[in-house]
Design a binder for these strands. Structure first.
Lengths: 190, 190
DNA sequence: CGCCTCGATGTCAGTCGCTGTCATGACTAC
DNA sequence: GTAGTCATGACAGCGACTGACATCGAGGCG
């Protein structure tokens, strides 16, 4: 209970996103972000490992949602299991969070350093999914393929969802993208 | 023709890989890499945008090989077109280059900063493939899915190839992984 | 041969990301 | 109220990276 002003990380994140939107990632120093949140540079680095990380708070919960979505699924083939995780992962992306997600993604897309970090987070997600699949007895190569495919579906759906106005539920977009992937591979088999 | 010692980038790359292998990425400064190649820090940054980039020379040629492999293919469905690029992309990975590729990958896997950069390069490859597919009339979502899937197949095959001793041709490993992906999605349809 | 151009390199100063260390101040527990 | 804990501040320092300017070596041209 907050001996000090609570929500330090969130304040820093908001300050960073605001400043990035206005001056660009390179045009903002960590000291400025911290000052904007009423803190010092040193404190920023106590809460975030580096300047990029400030836009990627709460990654563990997101990853966990994916994993629980998968472990909740009944046994099945590797790809179905991996795709079952998508349902859990879709939870945080509600219509009301759409504007925030959009602003954040805009900032990320604007700078390679932030895109790099996003890719690393998605890669970590794929690795976690792969591990969960091998724990269920799937071989390493099929597990990796299924996990990476699930992440591709997620990312593609997320891009489409962000491009829209948020009215369409994320889960719906994701189901559509998944169907499209199935259709594509079915066509290639012909 | 080399008024100065030629092969500057290559010398810097070799020096960096050697030093990273011995002292780790964080244990080596750019000044040390440059000195090891008989140059100064400032010159290093004239040839490479940053410290990480030194291990990713020749990315454009690699990407180009993928694209020409794809444009050489006859018309077909999106997924088949994307996978046609894999053949071209396999070219640089010969048995004789296996030791070098393995040492490089070992260094990359040892540090998140280098893994990030690798992911960014692969993402750029997927983007280029997506563009080439849309140029051929494929819709944006199927193009993105096919391109990302091709990259997933490539990366998975590369991991397996690196894990082996290089005796098996890379193209063969890649074909196997692709077949496995087809099998996985076919099973999920059932 | 001597002059000029040009591209690769060296030198230097400076900013910023990031870290280790120590001090301070607020709140809790006893 | 005294001690302990924890977020924070203050300060010094390293290394990545950049801009500006000087230098040096090779080739072109008289």
């Amino acid at each position: 209970m907050a001996r000090w002003e609570s929500g330090t990380q969130e304040r820093l994140q908001r300050a960073a996103l605001d400043l990035f939107a206005e001056h660009g990632y390179d045009g903002v120093t960590v000291a400025q972000i911290a000052a904007h949140a009423g803190l010092t540079e040193r404190t920023f680095f106590r809460w975030f490992a580096d300047k990029r990380e400030v836009l990627f708070r709460g990654q563990e919960e997101f990853e966990q949602a994916f994993l629980t979505g998968m472990t909740a699924a009944p046994d099945g083939d590797a790809m179905s299991l991996a795709m079952a995780g998508l349902a859990g992962g879709a939870a945080p992306f509600t219509a009301e969070r759409h504007p925030w997600a959009r602003a954040r993604q805009r900032a990320i897309d604007a700078h390679p350093a932030l895109r790099e970090r996003e890719l690393l987070k998605l890669s970590a997600l794929a690795t976690a999914l792969t591990g969960a699949l091998t724990d269920r007895g799937v071989g390493p190569v099929p597990a990796a393929l299924a996990a990476e495919s699930a992440v591709v579906v997620f990312r593609t759906a997320f891009t489409a969802w962000i491009a829209g106005d948020g009215a369409r539920p994320f889960a719906e977009v994701q189901a559509e993208v998944l169907a499209e992937l199935h259709a594509l591979l079915a066509a290639a088999r012909a």
